[in-house]
Design a protein around this nucleic acid. Structure first.
Lengths: 141, 141
DNA sequence: ATCTATATTGATAGTCATTCTCATTTGAGA
DNA sequence: TCTCAAATGAGAATGACTATCAATATAGAT
């Protein structure tokens, strides 16, 4: 149950938070902007404020329930934290996002940070390219 | 001469563009925001518009003279393109930016993209951590 | 189940970075 | 030097996000 997740995260269980969390869990699209979440909810007949969406997402992130990414093409996107860490590859033509995990890269990052005297706390790796999927090719011939 | 660079890039040689390019080449800090560039120039007695700075930076980037980065902590930073490709590690406490290049990571990225059916065109890798330099420690003890 | 203190919400105004508009100026070739 | 498209600067406009604040809802005590 979603209420459990919120409680475990130390957050009060409220209607808007449940709506957002449920949406994130049931959406096919795993990477959404705050605006998209707001739009999907209101279009679905729910009443919620945009400010509430931003606030909830910030709290979810602080609680480790979701992760935020800054892809080059614009807004911040949020993603439900499930499963192990991974990075992203984004299609610059159709916007499709795929995930990947690479042990070698993860390891090298730690080594590089250490060799430069840094204590690594996080990293952001995003690849950009063209996926050339059927939908992608259709989009811009 | 900077005029050469602009001409070679296919850009008309204008006073504001020269000011910006010269500043980028002579600054110790290699990573600057548009706002910083604008401030440094006007504080130096130059007359230039903020919109012009943004426009020039966009053109420089399109011409390959500079590179833009979106670090997690806020604004877009621009960096003069000189020397070979590299990625960044940013101190989350004092903001210091170091550069690094890792052949292994570069290679793995190409392989990963290919294995997912993407034609890789670019990537953004930024590590975040604490550098614990003397200035860094002084900042927040 | 009810009450209370406090956290949360929604509407809206505000902020900040960036882009657009447009009248004026400037650079490069004729 | 002249001409004219391209570039500039000032300020308005946009878009994403945050702060404010009165009204409301939640968690725990009663």
């Amino acid at each position: 149950m979603d209420s459990e997740e919120l409680r475990n995260a130390g957050l009060k269980v409220t209607t808007p938070r449940l709506k957002i969390l449920t949406l994130l869990e049931n959406s096919v699209e795993r990477h959404m902007t705050a605006e998209t979440i707001y739009r999907l909810l209101t279009e679905g007949g729910e009443v919620i404020g945009l400010a509430t969406v931003y606030r909830a997402l910030a709290q979810f992130e602080a609680a480790g329930l979701i992760t935020r990414h800054h892809f080059d093409s614009g807004q911040t996107v949020y993603e439900l934290e499930r499963g192990p860490h991974h990075d992203h590859i984004v299609c610059i033509r159709c916007g499709r996002v795929e995930e990947f995990y690479d042990k070698v890269i993860e390891e090298r990052q730690r080594e590089i940070a250490a060799s430069l005297g840094f204590v690594l706390s996080d990293h952001a790796l995003t690849l950009y390219g063209e996926c050339n999927s059927p939908e992608c090719l259709a989009r811009k011939g």
